[in-house]
């Protein structure tokens, strides 16, 4: 039945074409179509489906008891708490920044705007490991501020503040990138109307702008949060890997894995995989409500340039 549906598939647009333009489906074309679909799906099963399935299968390979024990382990719970804490600081910071940046960029014209947009994107081009390294160079024992911090007994490296900083760097562009095109598409007519009717600046933002951008905002926060909770490379450099203290969930997975404790490693990993699946579900839901969000992050640059001309 599935094959029949595949073979019978035609362009949705074709059905609205005048009759003389419709091409009769040829057998050769349909075999080709089926083949292309099968190869594409095969590739996706190999590279997306199987890695996803293997996480859960390995996590449950020693039974539910081991699974629950791995997650209820005090070090695992500490890692979960730390991961949530770090995201709870990094995501709102980047959210406030994203709103401020997109307000300035979308509502006003100024010199150097496209350079600013490129600079905001910069962290995407930096390897996660280097994102951690630069903070070591600043706050590490032999870093610029290292001696001063040591004198005042302030710990940033190999402690929670360093993890928060590295995570904030890595997730820096997410909200701004989603919001800039959304705000540009909104224009500023609504805000100008509100102001002319006597609303204050803050009132205009809260009651006019925010409702207009809420889906884009949520979309950016969703992606930002997924990356914040899952970041590995940058956090690995600055964390110091102290069990129960500076281990986030991805780092805890690594430690368990390197100790050949595979079932436990995959059990914690399965929580992160669930988070990823929930993120994708939320993302699809938002895209279904607001189709223009789908390619936002990738084509933000394009749309930004379009908005400026």
């Amino acid at each position: 039945m599935n094959a029949a549906r595949v073979l019978g598939a035609t362009y949705a647009a074709d059905r609205t074409e005048p009759l003389h333009l419709r091409r009769r489906p040829r057998a050769g074309l349909n075999v080709m179509r089926l083949l292309l679909i099968l190869v594409a799906l095969g590739f996706l099963v190999l590279f997306i489906g199987m890695p996803l399935v293997v996480v859960f299968s390995q996590a449950l390979s020693k039974g539910w008891h081991t699974y629950v024990a791995a997650i209820a382990d005090p070090n695992a719970l500490a890692a979960i708490r730390l991961t949530v804490l770090v995201a709870a600081i990094a995501v709102p910071s980047n959210l406030v920044f994203g709103v401020a940046a997109s307000w300035a960029i979308a509502k006003f014209e100024f010199r150097g705007k496209s350079a600013l947009i490129t600079l905001i994107d910069l962290p995407f081009a930096v390897s996660p490991v280097i994102s951690g390294l630069i903070y070591v160079l600043l706050f590490g024992a032999s870093g610029w501020f290292g001696p001063w911090l040591m004198e005042h007994d302030i710990r940033i490296m190999f402690a929670v503040p360093g993890i928060v900083l590295a995570t904030t760097f890595v997730t820096f562009p997410f909200v701004a990138r989603e919001l800039i095109p959304v705000m540009q598409a909104q224009g500023k007519d609504d805000e100008e109307t509100a102001l002319s009717l006597g609303a204050s600046g803050w009132q205009t933002f809260w009651f006019v702008t925010l409702p207009n951008i809420r889906w884009g905002l949520l979309y950016g926060v969703l992606l930002c949060n997924a990356r914040a909770m899952g970041e590995f490379g940058a956090v690995s450099v600055v964390s110091g890997h102290i069990r129960g203290l500076t281990n986030t969930m991805p780092l805890h997975v690594e430690i368990l894995y390197n100790e050949y404790n595979y079932a436990a490693a995959f059990a914690v990993a399965s929580l992160l995989a669930l988070l990823a699946l929930m993120t994708l579900a939320g993302k699809s839901l938002l895209e279904w409500r607001r189709p223009e969000l789908k390619y936002g992050a990738l084509s933000a640059d394009r749309q930004t340039k379009r908005g400026m001309t």
Partner: peptide, 23 residues
């Protein structure tokens, strides 16, 4: 299927790493 294409964006890299190794 379309939604799952984004999995590599959403799945933490360490999880992807151990999953691919297990495969």
């Amino acid at each position: 299927v379309d939604a799952l294409v984004d999995l590599p964006f959403a799945l933490p890299t360490a999880v992807a790493g151990i999953a691919l190794t297990a495969l």
